[in-house]
Design a protein around this nucleic acid. Structure first.
Lengths: 199, 199
DNA sequence: GTCTATAGTTGGATAGAC
DNA sequence: GTCTATCCAACTATAGAC
């Protein structure tokens, strides 16, 4: 019972302050217990941290797949474009996404390898899922581009760049960035290839 | 003399470990002095940190402008696309870019406002410069898209998304991502607008 | 499982000799 | 300017009573 509360409080602190910035005292305070009680559930700070990180990656992965399943059958354009709005909601609602990003981009020195072993399969899996999704959509005629991997990689780049603005600039700037980037991306993906309009 | 060495060592540590993760002892060790000697040059950790951050932003800004000036006159496509290669070199060479990103995306709690006051003018300035550059290029016929702000914002999104992969995935994955994202971006920017190719 | 008490370490910061 | 010595606060972690 307390174990789950500890993990939730820890997530919030790790997401906001990072591994080094978070302290077990503050986490215990938020749960309403004393610091040594944490050691009845976790071996130490590292153990608690890695439990949180693993849970965060599993949660985010599950939620993304749920999004795609929930909107299955809709046009690819709506689903891919709609994901940006979904991301904003997720990011504002809980700390899992923020924590995940922080761990992926700036993991604590001493746990770099452990986190990489968690993050790499997550990222590769997401990219594979997206490519196979685009290929499947192309077969049913809802997606024009034929180079799925290129379209998928470019899309993920868009998502990453947008999230960066969500973290730093906030929801409003995020919205403007998404609008501009998506419009050009979709135009680039749906235009006929082989044309060379460069001056 | 020592002041500059301290700042260089501090930059390296802040870039790798962040504000909380870096310690004055380690910084002093790298310089070859004792910890209290730092206080002869800086008021404390915060003071040293903010000096490093300010220097990092000024340096990066200056170097970006130098890049655009050095390639002035070349086609927009080459300059914008070439910036990705330039970024990779910069990022590998020194820690300034990495430190800058870390501070923008995950600033330390207690110095959030101070860092925002440094980062916001930098980002806004870069965006304004890019927009005016695209407008100027359009007048000389080297750039097709007429919505400069849209093209600029989308381009910056691309850069951010690519840098994320540079931090995490390394140069090889960065290269693949840039290739895919740039191709689609440039196609989207140079295609005629108004066409609706969505299924 | 949770507590009090405390060990042991490290952090930032200061005083004062040289 | 740099050092030694030191202070104080905060941290992780453990021992042992209940």
């Amino acid at each position: 019972m307390s174990k789950l509360n500890i993990q939730k409080a820890a997530l919030s602190h790790f997401a906001r302050s990072g591994y080094e910035g978070a302290s077990l005292s503050q986490i215990a305070d938020e749960v309403g217990i004393k610091k040594p009680s944490i050691y009845a559930h976790y071996k130490g700070k590292d153990d608690l941290f890695l439990h949180v990180v693993r849970d965060v990656f599993h949660t985010v992965q599950r939620r993304i797949l749920e999004y795609f399943q929930a909107r299955n059958g809709e046009p690819v354009e709506d689903i891919l474009n709609g994901l940006f709005g979904w991301i904003r909601q997720e990011y504002e609602q809980d700390d899992a996404a923020k924590c995940l990003l922080r761990m992926v981009y700036f993991p604590p020195d001493k746990l770099y390898q452990e986190i990489a072993d968690i993050a790499n399969p997550f990222i590769d899996g997401m990219q594979r899922k997206l490519i196979s999704y685009l290929r499947q959509s192309h077969q049913v005629g809802t997606f024009l581009c034929t180079d799925y991997e290129e379209a998928a990689v470019a899309y993920i780049t868009l998502v990453d760049g947008a999230i960066i603005e969500l973290i730093y600039g906030g929801p409003e700037r995020y919205g403007k960035r998404v609008q501009a980037a998506w419009l050009i991306y979709w135009r680039g993906v749906t235009s006929q290839t082989g044309r060379d309009l460069t001056s």
